[in-house]
């Protein structure tokens, strides 16, 4: 489904990703982990076409996407959430999710201006569909609240609902559990498994190891911009390079 081929990204002189390659198939939950500054978010931003790689190719369902504009991703079937929460805070919860329906609806400026027949029907169906996703993530009690007034845990759910509303084939979750308490994290991992079971491939960047190890089918590990390991949670947990990267070289020395 997704293939990252020899991708390098440099910002000025700083190398964020160096010759990274990996790929995965449909129907999985895939985790991207690594210590701070490993280049995980940079990789996510390239896969969602926020910015292009300096070198290399990104292929999604046999199509090169690394030179496409950001807004071409959602129609192809890639949607995402943001680590630093990019909700539309002056809009209500349901309006936020309705923006997620943007690519699934088609009323243009002229049709809207003249309120041509069919626009109302489309509006109602976008609303109903948005409410389904709100229900799915469990925000139904807050649907008419302004997004700016929501607590962090609810905002993460809202971003998830908005991303799902585009009906993605590949869903990118950038630290979706950051700042959540234990109960919220548990609920979030249940949701992610549900999303995968509904047929959407999920790719997560995550710091919460319990979450990653319990739900991922496959894990890719980055350290200082390079891929150092790839495999099942069990393989990753026992991988010496991964342990070194996370705990530092001193532990390794002490162990010897």
């Amino acid at each position: 489904m997704l293939e990252v081929k020899n991708v390098t990204k440099t910002f000025g002189g700083v190398v964020a990703n160096k010759d990274v390659s990996f790929s995965f198939e449909e129907g999985q939950i895939v985790g991207l982990i690594g210590p701070n500054g490993a280049g995980k978010s940079t990789m996510f931003n390239m896969i969602s076409a926020i910015f292009p790689p300096s070198e290399g190719e990104i292929i999604f369902r046999k199509q090169r996407i690394d030179k496409m504009p950001t807004n071409a991703m959602a129609p192809l079937g890639i949607s995402r959430t943001f680590q630093n929460l990019q909700v539309f805070k002056n809009m209500t919860v349901v309006e936020n999710v309705m923006v997620g329906r943007h690519i699934r609806t088609k009323t243009g400026t002229l049709r809207a201006a003249l309120k041509l027949p069919g626009t109302k029907k489309e509006e109602v169906s976008a609303y109903d569909k948005a409410m389904e996703y709100i229900q799915f993530v469990g925000l139904q009690d807050l649907y008419d609240h302004l997004a700016g007034n929501l607590a962090l845990g609810k905002l993460r759910l809202l971003e998830l609902a908005r991303a799902l509303a585009t009906e993605p084939k590949l869903l990118l979750l950038d630290e979706i559990a950051a700042g959540l308490n234990h109960k919220e994290t548990k609920e979030m991992s249940n949701l992610i498994e549900k999303i995968r079971n509904n047929g959407t491939t999920v790719f997560v960047v995550e710091h919460d190891m319990d979450l990653v190890m319990s739900i991922c089918d496959k894990i890719i590990v980055l350290d200082q911009g390079e891929k150092i390991a790839e495999g099942t949670p069990r393989e990753i947990q026992s991988n010496q390079r991964v342990i070194t990267a996370y705990l530092g070289a001193e532990v390794e020395k002490n162990a010897q």
Partner: peptide, 17 residues
Amino acid sequence: RALRSIHDSEIASSAMG
């Protein structure tokens, strides 16, 4: 709605297509 979303977060707006 699309326009209002651009106002609040252009990056999220374009990620939604």
